[in-house]
Write a protein that binds this DNA or RNA. Structure first.
Lengths: 265, 265
DNA sequence: CAGTGGTCTAGACCACACT
DNA sequence: GTGTGGTCTAGACCACTGC
C-alpha cells in the first residue's frame, strides 16, 4: 500500500505532475491511518448510523485484511475524537447527540452551583425561523457562496424560568430543507440530535470565538436584561465528518448566574 | 499484582480494614496504569526534569519488568495528557513551558487577524508583587488554609503597545519563597517557565471559568479603557502533577482586537 | 551505523454484557 | 457459554535522528 517506487532511472520521463511538487512529506501513511479513513468513509456514507454498533474488531480486521491490533488503533483514534464510543463487552458504537447522558455536548455554560441537575432542564423558545440569502460574512464562515439560501433560527434558552441564552443559527438551506419552527418546537431533546436523526447530519466538532459585549435594545428585550449588562458573545462553527462546516451559531450568554467552563491541558 | 482473594470462609475473620470499605470497584487496575503511576512518581520526585529525556522504552520495560508494549501504552497516555513529549528517533521528553514553540500554552487569546506572529511578542509590566494572607475564597481555591501566606502579583500584558490583559495572580507563599517583582521582570520567557525552572513547579493542567464583566475605575486605568467597555473575566486555577492547585489567576481580557478561542469535540 | 520511537502481527488471556 | 472489547506479550520490521 505504500510503494515508494517511481525511480527516474527508466527511459521514459516520469509524469511531471508526480515529480513536480517534490513530496516534502514522502506521503507515508501508516496502515491504521488508512483503515481509519476507510471507517470514516463508512460513517460518512451512512453505512453505520449514529447510535448503532459497527462490526466487531475481528470482523473489521477480516474485512480490511489486517490484524485486529491495527483495526484497534484506528478505532482508538476515532474514539478519542468522539466519533465512536467503545463499550466493553458490547461493541463499538457510532457517537450520537441523542440518548446521551450529557444533554448539551457543546454547551460549556454551567450554573454557579456547578450542579447541572439543580436547575432542571432548559426551557426553549423558538423566536424566529426563516429562509434568507447568505450575507458575505455568513457565507464565508459556512464555506458556501454569498446569496445561497440559508435557514436562520433565533431562540432563547431559559434556566429556572430565567432567560439566559439568546442564539442565532444559520444552516445551509439545501441540507436542512424542510426544517421549520414547528418541527423545532415539536422535537424533544437537543437540536443536534434532531439534525442527526432527521437530516443525517451528525455534528462532530466545533470551534468557538468568545468575546465580551454589551447587548442592543432588541437583544435586551429577549433576554430581559439591560443594555448595561455585559454578555458573553460566543460564535460557534460546528462541523460534520471531514471538517465540513454545517452550522454557524452566534450566542449571547448571561453570566451573572452561570459561567463558561473550559479546561486546558 | 491483582489477587482478589479474601474469602470469608476461613475460620479467622478477615482484616476489618480490608473488608469494611466493600470495594465497589474491585480495584482492578491494568498493568500499564500501574506503570503510568510509577512514571508519574519519577516525574514528581524530580528524577526526570522538564526538557530532559526519560529512559528509552526498552530501558523502562527492563526496569519495570514488563514488555515494551505495556510501557508504550503508559507513555502514550502521559503524552496525550501533555506530561511527556515523544520525538521519533530521539526519545521521550518531559514536557516544559520553556523552549516551547507556542509561547503561552494556557493563553487562548488570539488577535483578530488570527496570526500570532503579526503582533510580535507581548510587552509585560509587573504592576505589583507582594506577600499577603490568603482570604477565605482564595484559600479555598488554592486548597490551603485561610490566612496562610500567599504571593500576590498584578501585571499587564500589552500587544503592539496596546494594554490588553490585566492579571492578578496568587501563589502559595511557601512554595514560591523568594519570588520578587525584580525576578519576574528580569526573567525572559513565559511565567510558567520561570515557575518550572526556578521553583520546580511545572504546571500541567488548568481550569478556567469565564464571564463577561465591566471593569472598575482602577482596572480601567491600568488597561487604558472605559468603564463602559465589557471585558472577559477569566478565572484560572493551574495544577501541577497529581492535580495539586498551585496558582490562582484572575484575568481581564480586552476583546475588541482579540478573541478567546476554544475548540470542542 | 546504532539507537530511538512507530508500526504491524499473532496469539493468549482477562473483564464485561447478554442470553 | 459466547462474543465483545481490554490487556499483555514477543518478535519483526520501518522511519527518523545523529554520530
Amino acid at each position: 500500500m505504500n510503494t515508494a517506487a517511481d525511480s527516474a532511472l527508466s527511459g521514459v520521463p516520469a509524469d511531471p505532475a508526480v515529480v513536480a511538487p517534490a513530496p516534502l512529506t514522502p506521503a507515508f501513511s501508516p496502515l491504521y491511518q488508512q483503515i481509519k479513513t476507510l471507517i470514516l468513509q463508512s460513517l460518512q456514507s451512512g453505512e453505520w448510523k449514529p447510535s448503532t454498533a459497527i462490526p466487531s474488531e475481528m470482523d473489521l480486521a477480516a474485512r480490511y485484511k489486517v490484524s485486529q491490533g491495527t483495526v484497534r488503533k484506528a478505532i482508538d483514534e476515532l474514539a478519542s475524537e468522539n466519533l465512536l464510543v467503545r463499550r466493553q463487552g458490547k461493541g463499538t458504537y457510532v457517537a450520537t447527540h441523542a440518548e446521551q447522558h450529557v444533554q448539551y455536548r457543546f454547551l460549556r455554560l454551567l450554573p454557579d452551583s456547578g450542579d447541572l441537575q439543580s436547575e432542571g432542564p432548559a426551557q426553549r423558545e423558538i423566536v424566529d425561523c426563516k429562509r434568507v440569502r447568505a450575507s458575505a460574512d455568513i457565507a464565508k464562515l459556512l464555506s458556501i457562496r454569498q446569496g445561497e439560501s440559508v435557514l436562520q433560527v433565533r431562540r432563547v434558552l431559559s434556566f429556572a424560568s430565567r432567560p439566559t441564552i439568546l442564539e442565532d443559527l444559520w444552516l445551509p438551506g439545501t441540507t436542512f430543507k424542510g426544517l421549520t419552527a414547528e418541527r423545532l418546537r415539536a422535537y424533544q431533546g437537543p437540536m443536534y440530535a434532531l439534525f442527526e436523526t432527521e437530516f443525517g447530519v451528525p455534528m462532530v466538532r466545533a470551534a468557538e470565538k468568545i468575546r465580551a459585549v454589551l447587548p442592543d435594545e432588541e437583544q435586551c428585550a429577549l433576554l430581559k436584561t439591560s443594555t448595561q449588562t455585559p454578555l458573553l458573545s460566543v460564535e460557534r462553527i460546528a462541523y460534520t465528518y471531514n471538517d465540513v462546516a454545517m452550522e454557524l451559531r452566534r450566542g449571547l450568554y448571561l453570566t451573572d448566574t452561570h459561567f463558561y467552563q473550559n479546561s486546558l491541558n
